[in-house]
């Protein structure tokens, strides 16, 4: 706790901001798991994992086949809330590339409606490296907006200044004898890793080895998703699983 006090400067204390600073750009985290970059009127989502239920079904594990529809409905809600002129999906939008072609008619229609009147970018992920044209939008591997690179997998090298997905960060804290574990936006002010937006997407503790040295440990913040709000939590309060 002493460390937390020494590291904390009120001007930069996460609790006094409702926006996450990524390389000095202000981003507004939304409780649904999307990030709104107001200055660029751009909404970012990651790891939608459409058709994950269908992929599991093909392997014999029968999950309720409504995850795509649920994710689309959540996407619709968050898009309606901010009405961005640009949307970027940061990879693993489809659980398998080929499943994009077998989307249910209604789901594809809903997706097409969401894309109307705005720019839509699909960044390829490890699950969906090759996306078909039928899903509309622009397909790319990375996208750089105003000096910030948007990509699927966070890069270990380089100066950071990126927003990525792939790792499905989750934060765990203890308070008053209770443990709270939530999806979160993980950042150190330079690099940000998005929570997974998909209905069936699992989560990985932000202190896990998989996150390696992505974040400066004494600057790590986990913005934890509540029901309607996003709560900034200092790295020093986080617990492993």
């Amino acid at each position: 706790m002493l460390n937390a006090k020494l590291d904390l400067m009120p001007e930069s204390a996460p609790s006094l901001r409702s926006h996450i600073l990524v390389a000095n750009h202000e981003m507004r985290p939304l409780a649904a798991g999307a990030l709104y970059w107001e200055a660029e009127d751009t909404l970012l989502v990651a790891d939608l994992h459409f058709e994950k239920g269908a992929a599991f079904a093909a392997l014999g594990m029968l999950l309720p086949p409504y995850d795509t529809r649920t994710t689309l409905e959540r996407l619709h809600k968050v898009i309606s809330a901010v009405e961005p002129s640009r949307i970027v999906a940061l990879g693993d939008s489809f659980h398998r590339s080929n499943l994009a072609e077998s989307l249910a008619e209604d789901d594809l229609a809903m997706l097409t409606r969401l894309q109307q009147g705005r720019e839509w970018y699909w960044i390829c992920g490890n699950h969906d490296p090759h996306l078909p044209a039928c899903i509309g939008g622009t397909i790319c591997t990375t996208l750089t907006i105003n000096g910030i690179t948007l990509r699927h997998e966070p890069s270990e090298n380089g100066s950071g200044r990126e927003i990525a997905g792939h790792l499905h960060p989750v934060a765990r804290i203890a308070r008053r004898g209770s443990v709270i574990r939530r999806r979160c936006f993980a950042t150190d002010g330079n690099r940000l890793v998005m929570p997974a937006f998909g209905a069936y997407a699992g989560g990985l503790n932000v202190l896990d080895q998989a996150f390696g040295t992505l974040f400066l440990r004494n600057r790590l913040e986990a913005w934890m998703m509540g029901r309607a709000d996003v709560y900034p939590v200092l790295g020093s309060l986080l617990l492993p699983d």
């Binding site: 008053r176 709270i180 709000d229 709560y231 939590v233």
Partner: peptide, 20 residues
């Protein structure tokens, strides 16, 4: 849980101001 999360943030604010 929501209350506990809010408390965590409020404690942070209090610490930030007292530290400052």
């Amino acid at each position: 849980s929501e209350t506990l999360l809010r408390e965590t943030v409020e404690e942070l604010i209090a610490e930030a101001f007292s530290g400052h």
